[in-house]
Design a binder for these strands. Structure first.
Length: 218
DNA sequence: CCATTGATCGTCT
DNA sequence: GACGATCAATGGT
C-alpha cells in the first residue's frame, strides 16, 4: 500500500534486537484477514534478547513454543497467555539468536470499523490496540499466525515504512509486567501517544489457585 | 483518577 | 502442578 510507504525487507529485521525495536516505532503493520484490512501504526514495543535475556521465552533454550524465535528474522511469533489472550512478536536478528520484538500498542490507521467489531467492549478508538493482547485481537493474530513471514512480497501480513517518530519523542524504560531482569530497559514507546499502555511494574500476585480457588469452582 | 482482582489454559518443570 | 511478556470490571478516592 503506497499510502504507508514501502514494505520492509528482511535486512530491516536481521539486526540487533534493540535497534529493531527502536526502529519499529512509527512503522505500520497491515493485515488482510477474511477480506478485511486492518493497519496499525506501532507506538510501543519491547525487545526480548533471546538466550541471554532472562525475560525471554527463549532463555531456557528451544522448546516447541519458542522454536519460531530460533528461525529467521521477519517472521511472526505468536503465543497464548493467561488462558485467554494472544500476543504477537516479530523475530529479529540472525538465525539462532532467538530474539524478538513484542508489539505492545499502536494506533489503528486503517480498518477502524473492523477493529471496533473485533474489540466490541472497547469504547475509545485510542484503546483499540492498546496493550499486546488488544493489538493482537485487532489484527486477528492467533495460533494460525505463528510463523507468518512478513517479508513475502505477496504476504497478507506486512510491515511498511510509515513515518518514524522524532528521536526526541522516543522514550525508553523497563518492560511491563516482567519479573525477570526488571532493571533492564528494553521498552520503547512514543511520548504522548494516547495508545500507549500505562507502565505497570511487576508485582507479586495474590494466590489464584489453591484451596480457596478449588472451593470456588464447586 | 488509581488499585485490586477474577477469568482461564497452554506451557514447562 | 504452578504460573504467566493480560484485560477489563469493579469499587474507592
Amino acid at each position: 500500500m503506497q499510502r504507508f510507504g514501502r514494505r520492509l525487507q528482511r535486512s530491516f529485521f536481521d539486526r540487533d534486537v534493540d535497534e529493531v525495536a527502536r526502529d519499529l516505532l512509527g512503522r505500520v503493520i497491515a493485515v488482510d484477514h477474511a477480506g478485511l484490512r486492518v493497519a496499525v501504526r506501532l507506538t510501543e514495543v519491547e525487545a526480548y534478547a533471546g538466550l541471554e535475556d532472562p525475560a525471554s521465552h527463549a532463555f531456557r533454550g528451544r522448546t516447541p513454543r519458542s522454536s519460531i524465535m530460533f528461525g529467521p528474522a521477519g517472521h511472526l511469533y505468536t503465543y497464548f497467555v493467561y488462558g485467554m489472550h494472544w500476543c504477537a512478536n516479530i523475530v529479529a536478528g540472525p538465525v539462532g539468536d532467538a530474539s524478538a520484538v513484542l508489539l505492545r500498542a499502536g494506533e489503528v490507521v486503517d480498518g477502524v470499523d473492523t477493529a471496533r467489531l473485533r474489540r466490541s467492549r472497547v469504547t475509545r478508538d485510542t484503546e483499540l490496540a492498546r496493550g499486546p493482547a488488544g493489538l493482537a485481537t485487532v489484527l486477528a493474530f492467533d495460533a494460525s499466525s505463528n510463523g507468518t513471514d512478513l517479508c513475502r512480497p505477496d504476504g497478507e501480513v506486512a510491515l511498511f515504512t510509515g513515518e518514524p517518530p522524532l528521536a526526541s519523542a522516543v522514550r525508553i524504560g523497563p518492560r511491563v509486567g516482567v519479573a525477570a531482569a526488571a532493571e533492564i530497559e528494553r521498552r520503547f514507546w512514543i511520548e504522548a501517544e494516547p495508545s500507549v499502555s500505562a507502565f505497570r511494574a511487576w508485582t507479586p500476585r495474590k494466590r489464584t489457585a489453591g484451596p480457596a480457588a478449588a472451593l470456588r469452582k464447586r
